[in-house]
Simulated assay, not measured.
Amino acid sequence: MFSDWRNNPTFPFGELVAVPARHPLATFFHLFFRVSAIVTYVCCDWFSRSFVGCFVTVLLLLSFDFWSVKNVTGRLMVGLRWWNQIDEDGKSHWIFEARKVSPNNTAATEAEARVFWLGLIICPMIWIVFFFSSLFSLKLKWLALVIAGISLQAANLYGYVLCKLGGESDISKVTASFLSQTVFQTASPGDLQKPGLEGLEIHKH
C-alpha cells in the first residue's frame, strides 16, 4: 500500500520535503536527457563516424534519463514514485508511493503534470518507431541500442502508470483506465486531478 515517503528511510531523497510550487529545473531535466538521447541517435552520423562513441553516448543519456525520472522528476512533478524489490524468498515486488498533501508540501502544477506525462508517453513511442525503422532498413547494429531505449523508458512509463492508478496489476485494465483519464483531463483541463496525491498506501505486487 502507499505511504508518505518522509517516514520511509529507504527513500534516498526522504529528507528533501520542502517542495516549491514550481519545479522548472526538474521539468527541464525531465525532458533534457530523453530528448537529447533521441536527437543524438538521429544526428550521430552527422557528427561522428564512431559507432561505439555514439552508442555509448546515447546509452549514457538513456541511463541518466531513467535514473532522474524514476528518482527525482516523478517525485517533484507529480508526487509519485515506484521501485521494484526482491524479498528473501526471491519474489519480485512492485512498490508504489504517493506524496500526502500537507500545508508544507505543495502539489505539482497542472502544467508540470502534463509535461511529465506527455514526455513519459511520447518518447517511448518514438523509440518504437526507431525500432521498426532500424529493422526494415537492416541497420541491425543499432537494434540493441533501440531496444535499450524502449526498455528503459517503457519501464518508467509502466511503473508510473501503475503508481498513478493505485498499483492495479491488470495491465489491460490499467491501460483502459489511464487512457480514459487522460482523454477526460485533456477535454476538461480545469478539472485535472493531481495523480495520487490523496495519501494513498504502499502496494506490493
Rank of each mutant, 00 (worst) to 15 (best):
F2S: 06
W5M: 04
P9F: 10
F11V: 13
E15C: 11
L16E: 12
V17L: 12
A21Q: 12
H23T: 08
L25S: 10
L25C: 09
L25D: 11
L25K: 06
A26K: 02
A26F: 09
T27R: 06
F28Q: 05
H30E: 08
F32T: 00
F32C: 02
V35R: 01
S36K: 00
I38W: 01
V39K: 00
V42G: 00
C44A: 09
F47E: 00
R49A: 09
G53H: 07
G53R: 09
G53M: 08
C54P: 00
C54V: 03
V56C: 06
V56G: 02
V56N: 01
V56I: 13
L60P: 00
L62T: 02
S63H: 05
D65I: 01
D65P: 01
F66D: 04
F66I: 07
W67Q: 10
V69T: 10
R75K: 09
L76D: 05
L76M: 13
L76S: 07
L80V: 01
R81T: 14
W83C: 06
N84M: 07
Q85A: 15
Q85F: 07
Q85W: 13
I86L: 15
D87I: 14
D89E: 14
D89L: 07
G90V: 08
G90D: 10
G90C: 07
S92N: 15
H93T: 12
H93P: 05
H93V: 03
W94P: 05
W94N: 11
F96R: 04
A98C: 11
R99T: 06
R99I: 11
V101C: 04
S102T: 12
T106P: 07
T106Q: 15
A108Q: 06
T109L: 02
E110V: 11
A111N: 04
A111W: 08
R114S: 02
R114M: 09
R114P: 06
W117E: 01
L118Y: 08
L118M: 13
L118T: 10
G119L: 00
G119H: 01
L120H: 02
I122F: 08
C123H: 04
P124I: 00
M125K: 04
L135H: 12
S137H: 10
L138R: 13
K139N: 13
K139S: 11
L143T: 08
L143S: 05
L143E: 08
I147S: 04
A148N: 07
I150R: 01
A154P: 06
A154V: 02
Y160Q: 04
L162K: 05
L162H: 02
C163G: 03
L165I: 05
G167K: 00
G167L: 02
G167T: 05
E168T: 14
D170P: 07
S172A: 13
V174T: 08
T175N: 13
S177T: 12
F178L: 03
L179F: 11
S180R: 14
F184E: 10
T186N: 11
A187S: 12
P189S: 01
D191M: 15
K194A: 08
P195C: 02
G196A: 03
L197C: 11
E198K: 10
E201R: 11
I202W: 02
H203V: 15
H203C: 11
H203M: 12
